[in-house]
Each structure stands twice: as structure tokens, then as C-alpha cells.
Design a protein around this nucleic acid. Structure first.
Lengths: 242, 242
DNA sequence: TCCTATAACCTGTCTGACAAGCAGACAAGT
DNA sequence: ACTTGTCTGCTTGTCAGACAGGTTATAGGA
């Protein structure tokens, strides 16, 4: 009821306390928190303060409040984390080029690593994605979704939640530009071919080759980027590449 | 006052509306939102509902509320974004190995890229960090801070805010393990030497060499990881490497 | 002109109230 | 024994009103 003075707002203090309980496992996943009124009394703050604290914890996915039942400690899963992240990153004006650069740094090595440790199921997954892309292209589709899925599958197969986060992060940012790329003549078909080569390298467990083909693929994509950007700035566009 | 049925809570609805205003630039960075009471009246919900909505927006760094003044649209800067992120990621139990893997995938290429485009100031920066580490080690320090700074400097020099985010993300997670690594005999001194080689490669603009040395360095670090982990699980520790 | 008191706003927090969702108990009907 | 309906107590969702304590602009006095 009194210890403040630090400039912190009360509800932040309360949220911090609850968070601490969870971090130190005094409250475990699935546990029910005391009711709002109870906490209000025991901590000595108003119910509205408790509620504001709970709202912030709910937002970061730490707890879940169910009407009529109570508030429960939630398993802080990567997905929830990701959602918040994607939500806020839209507001950052990250240059699309920066995102491309991350891909450029990361994906070749990711492909190599996957080539070294891919299981059969991963290979099958990639193959089925490629097949879908082929079908999509043949039936007049853009193939964009499948292309994205291919890259995502490589990351997912590595079974590293962090990679998934980074992927979603980057994907989300250059969504617009990705569309633009697929509008360039023949890019979709060539993407398919490049993907296929990467796939073959992974399937034959040839890490070095996977790395090289991924790098080549990204270089091509980068070229298209360059053209689109120069189009943006100079008003000219060159539709054919290489 | 009645049209819900979607299960969404009112304050979520309100938060969404405000967010939309900001995303569509109807409210710009720095703008002041109407007062809570005003919004309460104009939207037709209670002030507490407005407040809960604002709390969630504040948490994701969209707005900032100042007591006695009002609520303002915040500039979504990378740093703020990062803070939020770091705050929530602690709750995820990401395996330290996953983070190491990211470094492994990313840093060699980062070193190569920097070798290709480093400016003199970057070189100087790296050199000064190395010098500080040397001094620290000679005077009995752990050199841990400087080691971290070296890696961070490489990312920073690439001038890609995304990389900084990823770096902070990973750094934050395996903070504990990093300490453990530096406790292994001679690891600090060897780290210094390995860093120095990377530095020389970057200085001489030799991308391939920078890549290789960084990879070697990380492999060594990985070996230590393995030992520490096996220590954790088997109760044995091996203090000397190679 | 400069300073200060103060009014007008604003957020922070508390309290009390009521609606509405949920779960378990219990009784009634089959 | 099994289903069904109702009741009751608990919990969250939302609202309205009140007051404390910052912040800012300004009117009025030195």
C-alpha cells in the first residue's frame, strides 16, 4: 500500500511480482491464480490494478484468463511469443534489404546443416512441397505460398524454435516485396528449379552443394530485388534476367 | 452494447481499434491520444476498459502513458522492441544449444560479410576491443565482457538492426553458459587468440579467411559446450581441451 | 518583465456494483 | 441407474464515480 517511490506504476510492480512467482516456478504451468478479489485483498491494491497487471501478463502469454473460471498460468510457448513479436515488428520500419541480408547470411548454412542431418520425413516433406509448387505453377498459380513453405520447411526441419522465430520475423517483413518478386517474368518457375536443386543436394546429403545452391538461389532473388528497387527509384524496369 | 458473440473481450476490441489507427497512420508518432475519459465517452465503454486496452498497447511499445499528461503514440524504435522481446524470451525455455546453433549458422557469414565491407572505423573498433580484452586478461580479469563485445561489434558493424536484435536475443539466452565456458582453463586466452585471427582476416579484407577462422572459433566453443554438458549429465569434467 | 499561485486537465488507483459465464450440487423425472 | 434441469456460489467483464497526485498554461501580482 505504500512502497513505491521508485516511479514504477503499481500495476507494473504487481505484474512483476506475479511474473517472478512464475519464473521461479512457485507457480507452475496450469496452476490457477487466486481470484482477482483475493489477490486484491492479500496484496493490498485495488482490483483494477490487479486486472491491469493480469492484462499485461496475458499479453506476453504468461497467463490466460477465462471468464467465470479464473486466471491460469500458461505454458509460455514459442508460438505465443512469436505472435507478440510479429505484431510489434510491423511498426518498425525495417528496411526490406536488411531482411534479405539475414536470409543471405543464414539460409545457406541452414541448408547445409539440414543436408547433414535430415531425416527421411524431412526429405519427403520438402519433396511434397516442391510437387505442390509444380502443380500450382502448371495450373496458373503464383507458387508464392509453396515457395515460402519450402524455405520454412528447411528451417523447421532443423528443429530449432529460434530459427522458426527468426524465419517468421523475416518473412513477415518482406511480404510485400516477395509478391513483387513473383511478378517478375519466369521468376516463379526458376525459383522452382532452384529449389529443386537445393532439394536434391539435401536429399543426397551433400552439405556443400546444398550451401552453394541455396546461395545461388538467393543471389538470383537478390538480383531481382535490385531491379525492383531500381525500378522504384528510376522508373525503369527490366523484365528479363540473365 | 450487445454485439459480441465473437468471444472477443471488449478491451481487446478497443485495443485493436486504436492499433489500427496507428498502423494506418491516422495517428502518428508523437501524437497524443484523446484522454481516457474522452475515449470512454466517444467509444461508449467504461474507462477501465479503455485503460486495459491502453495497458496492452503500452506493453508492446505502441503507446506511452505519462501521468498527468496523457497517452502518446510512441516511436517504435528497435531498442524498445528489443527490450520487450528480451523480457519475454526469458520465459521460454530455449535450449542453450539452439542458440549456439544460431551463432554457428550466422556468425561465420557475418564475419565474411564484414571483411568485405568493413570501414576503417570498424576495424579500429574491433582492434580496441581486442586490446581491452588483452589488458583485462593480463590484469586477471575474465575477459568475458570484451569477448562478448567483439562478437557484438561484428554484428553492429554490419549496420543491420535485425542482426542486432538477433544478437541480443541469443546473447541473453546463453548468458549463464557463457560464464561457464570462461571458467574452463585457458579458454579466455584462447578466445582472445581466435578473435585476433578473425580480426586480422577482416582487417585484410579476406572474407573466406574470416569465415574459416570464425567457424573454427565457434567449433572450439562448441567443444567446450560439449564438455560442460557432459559434465552436467555425467558428473565428470575434463578441464583441458585439444 | 518575471514570478508565482492556481485552475484545468490528465493519469493512477480505489471502491462498490451488477451482468454474465462456469462448475458442481442436488433434486426431480425417466 | 441415468439423464436432465435448476440452483447456488465463485469468477471474470464492465461500468460509474470518486479522489489523489502529476503537469501545464495562464492570470494576476511584484
Amino acid at each position: 500500500m505504500f512502497m513505491k517511490a521508485n516511479g514504477k506504476k503499481l500495476y507494473e510492480e504487481v505484474a512483476g511480482q506475479i511474473k517472478h512467482l512464475i519464473e521461479t516456478k512457485q507457480l507452475n504451468s496450469g496452476d490457477m491464480l487466486p481470484s482477482e478479489e483475493e489477490m486484491s485483498k492479500s496484496i493490498g491494491v485495488g482490483r483494477s490494478t490487479i486486472r491491469e497487471a493480469l492484462r499485461s501478463l496475458e499479453l506476453i502469454g504468461l497467463v490466460e484468463t477465462k471468464r467465470g473460471r479464473g486466471t491460469f498460468v500458461k505454458t509460455a510457448d514459442v508460438k505465443a511469443f512469436n505472435d507478440i513479436l510479429l505484431d510489434s515488428i510491423k511498426l518498425l520500419d525495417v528496411d526490406s534489404y536488411h531482411v534479405y541480408e539475414i536470409d543471405r547470411l543464414l539460409e545457406p548454412n541452414a541448408a547445409r546443416l539440414l543436408a547433414q542431418r535430415a531425416k527421411d520425413e524431412h526429405i519427403e516433406m520438402l519433396e511434397s512441397i516442391l510437387q505442390k509448387m509444380d502443380e500450382s505453377l502448371k495450373s496458373g498459380g503464383s507458387g508464392e505460398v509453396e515457395s515460402l513453405a519450402f524455405h520454412k520447411a528447411i528451417f523447421s526441419a532443423l528443429d530449432n524454435p529460434f530459427l522458426d522465430i527468426i524465419f517468421d520475423l523475416t518473412k513477415n517483413v518482406h511480404q510485400k516485396d516477395r509478391k513483387a518478386i513473383f511478378n517478375v517474368t519466369d521468376r516463379a518457375r526458376k525459383t522452382y528449379e532452384e529449389h529443386y536443386k537445393i532439394f536434391e543436394a539435401i536429399k543426397s546429403r551433400d552439405g556443400a552443394k546444398a550451401y552453394r545452391y541455396m546461395e545461388k538461389h538467393l543471389t538470383k532473388v537478390g538480383d531481382v530485388y535490385d531491379k525492383i528497387f531500381s525500378f522504384k527509384y528510376s522508373g525503369e524496369i527490366d523484365r528479363e534476367e540473365e
